[in-house]
């Protein structure tokens, strides 16, 4: 069985493909910035205390809190 990963599980430098999320949990702005199914996501860095998390989502560089990151399901590459 394939384990469900979220963006918050990814280690620094890991890449994954965005699988799904519930749009109620995710700010529209994040979706508009490229957080959509099928796009890749890479963890660039985590802030001290692991949170927020600095990502490259399909060429857009942004930071989100773990709270949101844990709602985005991904498949590791």
């Amino acid at each position: 069985m394939i384990k469900n990963h979220t963006v918050s599980d990814l280690q620094r430098g890991e890449r994954a493909i965005i699988k799904s999320f519930n749009e109620v949990d995710i700010p529209l702005k994040l979706i508009e910035m490229g957080c959509i199914e099928g796009n890749y996501v890479e963890v660039l860095q985590r802030a001290p205390m692991q949170d927020p998390i600095y990502l490259n989502i399909s060429g857009t560089y942004l930071a989100i809190r773990l709270e949101i990151a844990s709602k985005i399901l991904v498949e590791k590459l």
Binding site: P27, K29, L30, M33, P52, Y54, T60, Y61, L62, A63, I64, R65, E67, I68
Partner: peptide, 11 residues
């Protein structure tokens, strides 16, 4: 209220 924290990290 929900956190919805998104910050772009520009070049």
């Amino acid at each position: 209220s929900k956190s919805y924290f998104v910050v772009e990290m520009p070049n």
